[in-house]
């Protein structure tokens, strides 16, 4: 069980040069929890803070405020050097399997180096390292003997991502944070990687945090878990995955879901689907209002002035976990529906 409480991240301003920018608030008080073997998908567009969130969880970046608790241990209460072993149990799966493996080393090397650290801790010998490497590669669906001595460039994108997952398993993680883990993999291979992650959840009780802008992949991973929608560092909607998809109440969630392509011929667009063109470049919100107000077509004067908090959506049809941050929550049906055919695939 991992609990994230009011996590804040502020990047200091950069002055001068091409990349100069003001202070950036990447995360504004994000609170979430992931149970052992649970699944949580985080969706949002680039710049919403979802990648920062994953990197903080994996201990690759510091945070400016809030706290992370693992199995009841608040990491803020620990000295710096004692936090690392906790963060190590949260492993990040990078987006790009082509740079996530060292091109100069064989797969065996990639597996053996972290395993050697484990072997030292657990007083195991070199045979254990080799056997464990094979065992983990087999677990992620690779042929251990054929893969061990290969270099990354000899593997396809999907195979590489499997190796990356196997490598993350060397440290017995509690949580895998998959940041756009399938977006650079060929379409035909994506589903099997998603299945692998789901499989690890069941077999090893590893929690999955799936970070993506692809809502359908998010749904696939967290079909029995939760979906969280981030906008500019804030949770704007949260709840059981299918409930959010079928009855989204926040206009931003509705925009994200509308943006999913409709497979014409197999599906028909949802009646409330709306693709905005205006305002798609207005990222800077002004003043104290709702951050999404400048882009929201339902925004009122109140939205410009007051900031909505994350509150439960009390509606007879929804479950208690459904939360939203909107003054005017109205469920809209925006997602595509499959057309019923006898000859369905």
């Amino acid at each position: 069980m991992i609990e994230v409480r009011k996590l804040e991240k502020v990047y200091p301003p950069v002055v001068g040069g091409l990349l100069s920018h003001n202070e950036v608030r990447a995360l504004r008080g994000v609170s979430l929890s992931i149970s052992d073997g649970g699944a949580l998908s985080i969706i949002g567009e680039s710049g919403c803070g979802k990648t920062t969130f994953g990197r903080i969880l994996a201990g690759l970046e510091s945070y400016s405020g809030g706290d992370i608790a693992m199995d009841g241990v608040a990491l803020n209460s620990l000295p710096n050097n004692e936090r690392q072993p906790y963060f190590r149990r949260i492993q990040l799966i990078h987006q790009d399997p082509y740079t996530a493996l060292n091109p100069s080393h064989t797969i065996l090397h990639a597996m053996a180096v972290p395993l050697r650290i484990q072997a030292k801790l657990q007083k195991k010998n070199d045979d254990w390292i080799l056997n464990r490497s094979k065992e983990l590669l087999a677990m992620v669906g690779l042929d251990p003997v054929g893969t061990l001595y290969k270099y990354p460039h000899a593997l396809s994108g999907g195979q590489r991502q499997r190796v990356v997952i196997a490598r993350a398993l060397t440290v017995d993680p509690k949580i895998l944070v998959a940041d756009e883990a399938v977006s650079m993999i060929d379409v035909s291979m994506r589903l099997s990687i998603l299945n692998l992650l789901s499989d690890l959840r069941v077999r090893l009780r590893i929690g999955i945090v799936f970070i993506t802008h692809d809502v359908a992949a998010a749904r696939y991973i967290a079909k029995d878990g939760e979906l969280c929608v981030l906008y500019r560092g804030e949770v704007v909607e949260y709840g059981q995955t299918d409930e959010i998809i079928v009855r989204p109440v926040h206009p931003y969630t509705q925009a994200m879901l509308s943006a999913m392509p409709v497979l014409r011929g197999l599906e028909e667009a949802g009646p409330d689907r709306y693709i905005p063109l205006e305002g798609m470049d207005d990222f800077e919100g002004q003043g104290s209002g709702c951050l999404f107000a400048p882009r929201c077509r339902h925004a009122t004067a109140r939205c410009q002035e007051q900031h909505p908090d994350l509150v439960p959506w009390d509606d007879r049809l929804s479950s208690s976990s459904h939360h939203h941050a909107c003054f005017y929550p109205i469920p809209r049906n925006v997602v595509a529906r499959p057309i019923n055919r006898e000859n369905a695939l």
Binding site: Q84, R88, Q91, A100, P114, I117, R167, A168, V171
Partner: peptide, 13 residues
């Protein structure tokens, strides 16, 4: 800046 270096950090090297 490549992710394999970051991964190595995350794995405790």
């Amino acid at each position: 800046e490549r992710s394999f270096v970051e991964a190595a950090r995350g794995l405790g090297l």
